[in-house]
């Protein structure tokens, strides 16, 4: 069916929009200057954390993504690696349960998987919408958390390790999908240890970051989607 293919390219965009920028949506939206007591302190805390986290040029991390879906007994587990090079280059490699890679830059999205064994490429140069998506993606992974209070109610869950919960406010579009997002930081607070996204549907996605290296040297093979190790 034609629709099977036509959705293919859409899906590449949707994946960004839904998971990462989905989170971005929750964090993006409108600014509420009022805030409850403690929100000013939280803003300062987030700014401080954001500055600490954003002090890197490159990032290399392994990840385990667990998806518990309300309709299913067993959870889905994806394992892989993420490479990020500021200002706007990110590679997302899935190693298990199948091999898949996507490279996102300010100019293109390129993806490959072992089953089709095809490299697909989409130009972003004439697509300002997805240039913007890349911008948000980079900001999210780069730790520029200054605007996290915007559109969300923020709660400090724990100080050691630092755990912060974001609940979309009524006027936040993410409210329709996301119940809350919880960030857990490493002990040194230089990067994320875990992101947990709880959806209204009952689905819960948890991404654990392991073996995270900041400013590690990255070579070109880190950003290759085909023939990678």
């Amino acid at each position: 069916m034609i629709m099977y293919w036509r959705i293919g390219m859409r899906v590449v965009f949707s994946m960004i929009l839904c998971v990462i920028v989905g989170a971005g949506l929750a964090f993006g939206a409108e600014t509420s200057k009022g805030g409850t007591p403690g929100q000013a302190d939280l803003r300062e805390l987030l700014n401080t954390i954001g500055k600490r986290v954003s002090e890197f040029k490159t990032l290399k991390t392994d990840f385990t993504q667990e998806k518990k879906m309300a309709m299913f007994k067993q959870k889905l587990v994806l394992k892989g690696r993420i490479y990020l090079q500021k200002p706007n280059k990110i590679a997302w490699h899935v190693d298990s349960p199948l091999r898949y890679s996507v490279l996102i830059t300010d100019k293109l999205i390129r993806q490959w998987d072992e089953d089709t064994n095809q490299v697909q490429e989409i130009s972003l140069t004439k697509n300002p919408v997805f240039q913007n998506v890349l911008g948000q993606l980079t900001v999210w992974f780069s730790g520029e958390y200054g605007s996290l209070l915007d559109g969300n109610t923020v709660r400090l869950v724990k100080r050691a390790p630092l755990v912060i919960e974001f609940t979309p406010r009524e006027n936040n579009p993410a409210k329709k999908v996301i119940k809350n997002i919880t960030l857990t930081f490493r002990d040194d607070q230089k990067y994320l240890q875990q992101i947990r996204i709880q959806e209204l549907s009952g689905d819960v996605t948890t991404i654990h970051f392991m073996n995270t290296l900041l400013n590690a040297p990255l070579n070109s093979s880190s950003f290759e989607v085909k023939g990678r190790v």
Binding site: S14, M15, C18, V19, K67, F72, L78, V94
Partner: peptide
């Protein structure tokens, strides 16, 4: 039957029963 289809990054595309 129940099925959920995701893209390789784990993003849910659709879910049906």
């Amino acid at each position: 039957f129940r099925v959920v289809c995701l893209n390789p990054m784990g993003v849910k595309l659709f879910e049906l029963s």
